[in-house]
Amino acid sequence: MAEKRERYQNRIELLQGTLDLLILQTLQWGPQHGYGISVAIRSRSGELLRVDTGSLYPALHRLEKQKWIKAEWRISENKQRAKFYQLTAAGNKQLTKERSKWSQLSDAIAGVLNPEQR
């Protein structure tokens, strides 16, 4: 119980808010299923970011509910029926918003960390 709780808390700190951004960004390159998204995030982050399925799927379903992405059952390249998510117009707008928020945040943090560069 205690161990599980700790893991949960770490993950919250690591990913809160950013997971949505990563998913939306991944989908901008084209429709993708859950597994594909997790593989993409992992490889593009140089294996640093591993997305927990317990966060990924709730996030996907939540984004779908918010109508930023929509889902469709399709056959994947290796003949596998899978649920593909794709960005909606609203999702595209949200992505722009999240990106600018993120760059503001990272600038701000960078400023705090390296004050002499200002």
């Binding site: 299923h33 859950g34 597994y35 799927y57 994947s76 029926r81 899978a82 649920k83």
Partner: peptide
């Protein structure tokens, strides 16, 4: 659908 989504994830992962 959720069940199938999870199943397809597992299948693709093991296939990889």
């Amino acid at each position: 659908e959720l069940g199938e989504e999870v199943r397809s994830h597992l299948q693709m992962a093991s296939q990889d």
